[in-house]
Design a protein around this nucleic acid. Structure first.
Lengths: 189, 189
DNA sequence: ACACTGATGGCAGCAACTGACATCAGATCG
DNA sequence: CGATCTGATGTCAGTTGCTGCCATCAGTGT
């Protein structure tokens, strides 16, 4: 498969993040991003459906990780514990490059349209997890509930991690899961 | 407070829903909506930030309902039970005009951009509930967790209701909360 | 050399959205 | 009752995200 300059998508994503951080999302034009990546505006839209989507390059990978982790959990595992280990796997992945994650999060958090896109990615995660659970024999609505609960816990833990200092995301995740259990079991005031 | 024709916002929302249902979201132009409501395109954007936002007219009301229900729960109520009754209140409200809710849901579900907007509204609900819980003295992260869990349960229950037949939303909500408890307590396979 | 395929660029065009300015209905005041 | 003031609306121009269409160019296989 012949190419011109390799990894056009990656170059676009990198250029976009840099420009969004530098001058803001609204103030950045797609033409600028494309130019910085050495491509035309038209080509940008061949690689990303949106001006926003470019910030979520790599998301599919995390989703695959989730599905495989759920599928690979021991048969004895309960739905919630399978989801828990899957979330920890994603958490560990994010901790490999925390600076980049925080930078991206700062951009995303600054604009409502970007938060929207993030939420739909999380919803897709939940759907993928629910499907993986169903393939393990978990029935509805337990599958969807476990998946949604897991993602909800992840959201809270991730926020704590980003806004906090140094503490390990995986640790925060484990603690949040314990807290969630207590809350939903009405063992909390 | 003088007006020309009263309730411009409501007229725009109604016209928009009708056109979105009739000819689809993408095929409908803002100028058409404005025209149908007897207003100009520019004025549409004075009432709604977006072409999408018009579908979520009335959301603030539901959010107020949520906050008041949480605030009004008896002091002895646990966070999760306070959230539960608040969700039931919203569920009951939706059941007052099920046809309209289903119609709106059909439009929203048909387009990713609209689902995005819906998700951010739900996130706003969660944030409002968490705040109301904090004002009851619930600490973090229990407040956020209870709120997020509640919204996650609501999402699942609402989907079951819309896709199902006749069954009461409030009933489905109650059952889903029981299911969620079992799932997260690992009492489910 | 030749055609073939897939990635790219260029261009035209629509529609969403914004800013600036004029205008008009109705309330308030003298 | 008329002048004025305020807020909602209309008009117009302009930017930009995004799409369709067609030409072109890099690299592959024949």
């Amino acid at each position: 498969m012949g190419r011109w300059e390799p990894n056009a998508r990656g170059r676009l994503a990198q250029a976009a993040l840099a420009l969004y951080v530098e001058q803001g999302f609204d103030e950045t034009t797609v033409a600028q991003i494309a130019g910085k990546a050495g491509l035309s505006e038209r080509t940008f839209f061949r690689h990303f459906q949106d001006k926003r989507e470019v910030l979520f390059y790599g998301t599919e990978h995390a989703q695959e990780l989730l599905k495989k982790a759920v599928a690979g959990a021991p048969p004895s595992a309960t739905p919630m514990s399978a989801v828990g280990t899957a979330l920890e796997a994603v958490g560990a992945m994010l901790e490999e490059d925390p600076e980049r994650v925080r930078l991206r999060d700062a951009v995303v958090s600054s604009k409502a349209e970007l938060r929207e896109r993030e939420l739909i990615k999380l919803a897709a995660f939940a759907a993928a997890v629910a499907e993986a659970l169903r393939e393990r024999g978990v029935r509805e609505p337990a599958a969807s509930l476990a998946a949604e609960q897991g993602v909800a816990i992840f959201k809270v833990a991730f926020t704590l991690w980003v806004r906090g200092r140094g503490q390990s995301l995986v640790e925060i995740l484990r603690q949040s899961m314990r807290d969630a259990k207590a809350v939903i079991a009405d063992r909390s005031r």
